[in-house]
Design a protein around this nucleic acid. Structure first.
Lengths: 149, 149
DNA sequence: TTGAAATAGTACGTCAGAGGTCCTATATAA
DNA sequence: TTATATAGGACCTCTGACGTACTATTTCAA
């Protein structure tokens, strides 16, 4: 259904929250979980993944928590989504090559597929749009036209 | 994720196939199924749904089959996708109102959701892009820039 | 030095939906 | 009247989204 997962949604919320903290401050998984009513255990898993991907830094122990590592304008939607749900593909036949660069538009799954090329193009358009979209865009809600117009 | 389903893929292929038939000709589910190696029973279900949605006309009986009803440039991606997989939503909180018109950007699921507005905007951007995209665009593969640039 | 509070790592459980099959009824051409 | 279509269902299976649980480790503070 062309949907992102809840994990990505929760991840975005957490990142937004962390990005808004005053410099040097931490937020614990529990805090965030309670503030937005996100299941704690799930959010912890998400933050673990974000930490090991280098998006946030964790501080263990009592009074520990997380703070953001990347500046919001360097966190793009696709990157974050792929950390939490794996490679984005509009259709199964769309394989990004390892470099994350251009895919060649070939469908490995179906001979004679008449829609392989256009699907690859659409995939790329959406992907490019979402790569341009950063956490910074997501954070300043009011200005509605900040995005790729 | 952010994927369309195989049903939509198969539906697009079938529509493309039908759109390319000479005027007055039919193609049966079996033909299409064999040509593109799509599971027959599944494709039949898809064609049934497309028929009851008015995208194709069915002709029953021996030598029956389907022909396309809508002109390719009037078949948009979102419409077809929503026939086959239900309403498109980038996130659960994105509810299209009944008119198919503007959603209001409010999240009914989560109080204090800090990303509701931007998510709704992104949803709308992708949706608008995919609405502009028609079967006609999908059919002429080579021209790569026909789409919403 | 001990306990509470936090993250790390990992494994597991559940359930809806994607993907696919099958059966019966009906229409139509030969 | 038979073969070949579609119509309309019901049904099945398996994967992945979503969420839980447990143990280990780190750190602060009483």
């Amino acid at each position: 259904m062309l949907a992102m997962t809840k994990k990505t949604g929760y991840g975005l919320i957490a990142m937004t929250h962390l990005a808004r903290l005053p410099q040097g401050h931490l937020a614990s998984a529990r805090e965030i979980s309670e503030h937005y009513e996100i299941p704690l255990a799930l959010l912890m898993n998400i933050l673990k993944e974000l930490a090991s991907a280098g998006y946030v830094k964790s501080v263990r122990g009592s009074h520990g928590g997380y703070h953001i590592l990347k500046p919001p304008n360097e966190v793009n939607f696709v990157g974050l989504m792929e950390v939490l749900e794996g490679p984005m593909k509009l259709a199964e036949c769309v394989m990004e090559d390892v470099s994350g660069g251009l895919d060649n538009g070939k469908c490995e799954l179906m001979e004679k597929c008449p829609i392989s090329d256009p699907i690859h193009r659409v995939h790329r358009r959406i992907r490019d749009f979402l790569i341009e979209l950063t956490l910074a865009d997501v954070m300043d809600s009011p200005p509605a036209d900040a995005v790729a117009r």
